[in-house]
Design a protein around this nucleic acid. Structure first.
Length: 279
DNA sequence: ATGGCTGACGCTGTCAGA
């Protein structure tokens, strides 16, 4: 079973590349961030025509998340407010469309787009910190249930210096400050593991390259898109990789997909098998 | 040269992202 995350930087602008990537890679689940489109204008048909189901939540111009799945999508929850009930702050933090979660094949998929924060002295950085502190509360609600969890998306934080091409240049600044790193570590807790690092402990594994300064040509990247899983999924994880080659596409997103392969039975496999037998 | 690119909105510029 393949589960992927990709910040597409506008799903409409990127639709041909997203379609091509789905056809080439055949993921079971693809989580998108920065769709930048209201739900009524989302290009549903491209995905349904390929046999996928969708759960989406977007807004005009900014943010927006989507879960694209070959398997049934159940118990969809939008934002923090569907999980942290009767909480004014959780509702406020759900106005920007940055979280969607659902149950697929008995796995709790949680797709997030963490705020960037702009700079450490910005009001947006306060928003980022508040947002991550609520992510912690939100995750604890799911961790108290039995379902295995796959938390994935654009975290806008490089967890360690080896997740930045030039740590000496960016250390202490936005996306690389100890404040954010510690807060994210606290939010993730000890039940979720950064699964990419199980397979690739080294440097030079980037998921984002700035559009400016020929960052791609110089391979000046960051690893800010992550996949975290709980123990049951971790023990079944077979591989996890970054599909960096599509960053060289014409008009690419500045982020590339991260993909996890796990040994996991599909709920529909049994039905498909018996259907084949009856033919 | 870490914002000196890109996308959305909506109009020839402004805001936001990372």
């Amino acid at each position: 079973m393949l589960i992927a995350t990709w910040n597409v930087n506008s799903v409409r602008s990127r639709i041909d590349q997203v379609k091509e990537w789905l056809v080439d890679n055949q993921p079971d689940i693809l989580c998108l961030q920065e769709t930048k489109v209201e739900d009524k204008d989302f290009p549903f048909e491209v995905f349904t025509n390929l046999g996928y189901q969708l759960s989406i939540k977007g807004q005009k111009s900014y943010n927006g998340v989507a879960i694209i799945s070959r398997h049934s999508i159940d118990d969809v929850q939008i934002g923090f407010e569907d999980v942290i009930l009767n909480n004014e702050e959780a509702s406020h933090l759900s106005e920007q469309k940055r979280v969607i979660s659902a149950l697929i094949n008995d796995i709790r998929i949680i797709n997030v787009y963490v705020p960037n924060g702009s700079s450490l002295d910005s009001e947006k950085f306060n928003y980022k910190k508040k947002w991550i502190s609520y992510l912690k509360i939100f995750l604890d609600k799911y961790l108290s249930r039995k379902d295995p969890i796959c938390l994935l998306g654009d975290f806008n934080i490089a967890p360690e210096d080896k997740d930045i091409h030039s740590p000496e240049k960016f250390k202490g600044k936005i996306m690389a400050s100890s404040i954010e790193r510690e807060l994210l570590k606290y939010a993730i807790g000890d039940k979720l593991e950064d699964v990419f690092r199980i397979f690739e402990p080294g440097k030079d594994n980037w998921t984002w390259w700035n559009y400016r300064h020929s960052a791609w040509e110089k391979n000046n990247g960051w690893r800010i898109d992550h996949i975290y899983v709980t123990e049951e999924l971790l023990s079944r994880a077979r591989s996890c990789w970054i599909d960096k080659k599509i960053r060289s596409n014409h008009k690419p997103s500045d982020h590339v997909p991260v993909i996890l392969n796990i040994d996991w039975p599909s709920l529909e496999d049994e039905n498909e098998f018996s259907f084949d037998e009856n033919e």
